[in-house]
């Protein structure tokens, strides 16, 4: 394939990465923004969403769409509930101390990952997409008779992939509306701005924290359910989303939602395109170094304004 069509393909694949990444990273960003907790186990909530999606889908008979729809509803709910439980039994008892919660969520990471290994096993398992029509993409090329439309082999996408991008965009808009327009969003923002003040105004801060932690985990799980028909469910699949979410959240400005989404789109798209030119390992090395350097020299993120 020539470079032009290849780049189109890379951009499309990148858009899917960006969509899923934006959902996952917004979950991480919300938890950090409101609770000041860095959740190292976030990637495991993602993995758990995918594994639960597989479990739900294979235990329901009938058209794959039914199983998938059920997974879309119940996998995030289950993961969210688990996260709420983790918040109430662990994080709350640590008083949300930043350093100790990181250590505890590292522990949580291993617990979730290794329990999944014991229960689900080391295999990667697919989930069937609810619909999956192939769409070829045309390309224009100047031949002997001037410009003509051709259909390069391999240049194409599926209805499902486009649906993932659309769904992620809708969910992000819903999260945005929830945060800015609803009462619960107001409560979250108030807690984020000033915990003591929120307490003084009678906001049940601890319940807000549990809710936010659950909600953040549910977003990661939701992203995983969306991606699992494209990738397979595996107990070690949480590592990459965690790393990429970190990159996105840090570059986008810690705790800033628009910055996070913007960075997710940027990283997702460039991840697709960079991997055309570099090996994935080199791309990851550059990305991790970039994040570290941003944290050192520009802790407010590349897009974030100066926080006061």
């Amino acid at each position: 394939m020539e470079l032009g069509p290849y780049l189109v393909l890379a951009t499309l694949e990148g858009a899917i990465t960006a969509a899923v990444l934006a959902l996952t990273a917004v979950g991480l960003s919300l938890v950090f923004g409101v609770m000041r907790v860095v959740n190292i186990a976030h990637g495991e909530f993602f993995m758990l969403g995918a594994v639960l999606a597989w479990w739900i889908a294979q235990s329901v008979a009938g058209h794959p769409a039914i199983g998938f729809a059920l997974a879309l509803i119940f996998a995030p709910l289950l993961v969210g509930a688990l996260a709420v439980a983790a918040d109430m039994t662990i994080l709350k008892r640590l008083n949300y101390d930043p350093e100790r919660t990181i250590v505890a969520t590292i522990g949580l990471l291993y617990i979730i990952q290794q329990l999944t290994l014991m229960g689900y096993g080391p295999d990667a398992r697919p989930v069937e997409a609810p619909f999956n029509t192939r769409l070829a993409i045309p390309w224009f090329e100047r031949g002997a008779e001037g410009w003509q439309m051709i259909w390069p082999w391999g240049l194409g996408t599926t209805t499902y992939k486009l649906a993932v991008i659309g769904a992620a965009a809708m969910i992000l808009c819903a999260v945005w509306a929830l945060m800015t327009r609803s009462r619960i969003g107001l409560v979250m923002r108030a807690t984020q701005a000033d915990r003591e003040m929120a307490l003084a105004f009678g906001i049940p801060v601890e319940r807000v924290y549990a809710l936010v932690f659950g909600f953040g985990a549910a977003l990661a799980a939701l992203a995983a359910v969306l991606i699992v028909p494209i990738q397979q469910a595996h107990y070690l699949m949480g590592g990459d989303p965690l790393l990429l979410s970190f990159i996105v959240v840090i570059i986008g400005g810690l705790g800033s939602l628009p910055g996070t989404v913007l960075a997710a789109v940027l990283i997702g798209l460039s991840d697709g395109i960079i991997s055309v030119f570099f090996s994935p390992t080199l791309a990851k090395i550059i990305a991790t170094l970039l994040v570290a350097l941003v944290l050192v020299f520009r802790p407010q993120g590349l897009f974030g304004g100066r926080r006061t």
Binding site: P98, I285, L295, V296
Partner: peptide, 28 residues
């Protein structure tokens, strides 16, 4: 020299990221 410009949580993440980059470099 780099990481000590940060503190607390940022120090943890920066050291984590550099170590990860080191690990990937070994693989690369």
């Amino acid at each position: 020299a780099l990481a000590l410009r940060t503190s607390g949580v940022a120090f943890m993440i920066v050291t984590l990221m550099f170590a990860q980059a080191g690990y990937l470099t070994v693989l690369y």
